[in-house]
Design a binder for these strands. Structure first.
Lengths: 190, 190, 190, 190
DNA sequence: CATGAATGAGATTTCATTCAT
DNA sequence: GATGAATGAAATCTCATTCAT
């Protein structure tokens, strides 16, 4: 069973760095220290392996989202928590979150594919979370009265950009988290 | 000659949507309304076609960057111009700028590849531009005294996120440009 | 285009002698004097190649069936013609008719597969032809009053057995045709 | 021990319906409710399993043939007995007799393989039995003076066709047995 | 007896690329 | 310029078989 996990770990790394089509099963097998057919023993095929990894990544991600505190004294704390969560995730599981924000583009053509569905769910979740934050914050006079839809897209873009940036290392990320939160705070909070 | 352009246009679209490895020469040929050998008549191969497209995309991009006004009354105008430029680019040439921000991940392993070099150049250019803006703005008491390196990364992430967001349509993009600029202004300008 | 025909001919021979699953694409390619990918250039895959061959075989077979004289002085002539037709077919295109009577058993599980449909059509055609012969012949006092359904099955079995017998060579087949027809005549005709 | 029989039964069914090459050891294991290695515990391999089944089927078949009454008042009774025997066999053990008449075509290339030998033996046995019947019957003025070799082949074809016809159900088979015997009687007996 | 895990050999298929015209 | 036919190399996947337990 150690070998199955090896396959998953190696594949996660390779898929997130080279893309689905840029990674061969032979490469996965070699780097995982197994033979190719073992991949087919544990998974139905390359597609299935990929799908499982995407599901795993999204599930871990959604679990973290769900554990965000529902009650906060200010609305901005919610945004702060969300941004901090993503920075932490990028530090701890950069490959997984990268995949959760950039699943195989070719697979997104099929709207019924797991990739499409999970990505859709993610977008909706973040959209709802941020919209609710913003409108409550504006109504409660905590926030400037920004355009909600546009600001949601902007914040989503910011998070996406953070997750996608490869080559940012630990030290940098730590500093960025605070800087980013303050950046948002000055923009939003009155 | 119309056919050569067809090939380039189709390939640009497909590469940006399915990635380099996810796109086959046959697919390009079919969608461009030509046969495969014609691709080899006009280009040295799939790699060459890709490289040309990447170069084109980056060159157009760099041309625009260079045409940004060098002198502005405030430093924030520079940032405003930069953000507005990217929004305009996304509206006008979404596939090209997408490629300029997300070239083939597999090819980036080779640091001497055109993709790596152009991306490096892009990062440096934006880094320099933003750093200079920020430090001058802070020195001139125009901006809050933010951490420069981290804020540069943050702004780069924001731009990257905007470019990567597929499925944002014209109306949305127009509104977002102003919202984003105001968002940044409130964060930065005293 | 000669090579495409080579593939078809070789595949027909091999499929009919070793079965679908017992024949590899490499074997077909080698014996046809081509490389494996050429099979995939001309056909969608091994399945498609097989299907085309089955269709061809059945089409040739049905064409011959349709060219049987519709009007005969006696009903037995119809049976005679049918039996003679099969013997001629076995002599001229043994592989094709073998396939038309014994398409890939595994494929017959799928009732919507070409194999199933053509075989069904064949059974119906022969069943209708023979039933009509027999009932007319019995009504017209030409034939003994045999049980129709059972006799149809019996004659179908006889034809099937003739087609399936490998290793019967020309001389033998020629003699058998007449012997078989006389055998049937003595059984049926009063 | 029940499991070993399960394997044999399942394999017999599958081999006779999908052919040797169209049946995988995994499929046999699954349908028999065991795991693959158990097949290798009880048999030397897939080939061995197949060979045993073929041998069993032929042995059962030959046992029945040998139990045919050696002495009969007429020669036609011998033919009647033979035809009836096959119909009974088809009703009772359709898969086994199917295999005895249609062993793996690929294996028949090897003349020293059990399949080839048993099939050869079967052909010889039936050939001898029928030839002797016919010549005795003709000499004794019981039969029309038909061509012996050809008629033997014809009767073999008839039996083969009956055995090969899948999808004939019980009721039909019962009726066919009598009809077939009468058909032959009218043809042969003066 | 029995199995989960694993593999070597090979089958099917894809794809960038080239050749002959 | 342009194409239909063809291919070498490699990718995905299957399968009979074995090993460790």
């Amino acid at each position: 069973m150690k070998k199955k996990q090896n396959i998953i770990d190696t594949a996660t790394k390779l898929f997130s760095r080279q893309g689905f089509d840029g990674t061969t099963t032979l490469q996965i097998a070699r780097e995982a220290g197994v033979t190719e057919p073992l991949i087919y023993y544990h998974f139905e095929g390359k597609d299935d392996l990929f799908t499982r990894i995407i599901e795993n990544s999204f599930n871990t991600y959604f679990d973290r989202l769900k554990s965000l505190p529902a009650e906060t004294t200010t609305q901005f704390e919610k945004i702060e928590n969300l941004v901090a969560l993503h920075f932490r995730f990028v530090r701890e599981m950069p490959d997984e979150i990268y995949l959760a924000f950039s699943t195989c583009p070719a697979k997104l053509k099929d709207k019924s594919h797991v990739c499409s569905k999970k990505l859709e769910k993610q977008r909706k979740w973040l959209g709802t979370y941020l919209s609710s934050c913003l409108s409550t914050g504006i109504a409660g006079n905590e926030f400037h009265s920004v355009q909600i839809k546009e600001t949601v897209s902007l914040l989503y873009a910011l998070i996406l950009g953070i997750v996608r940036q490869r080559g940012l290392h630990l030290n940098m990320l730590k500093g960025m988290s605070g800087t980013t939160i303050e950046f948002c705070r000055r923009s939003l909070v009155k």
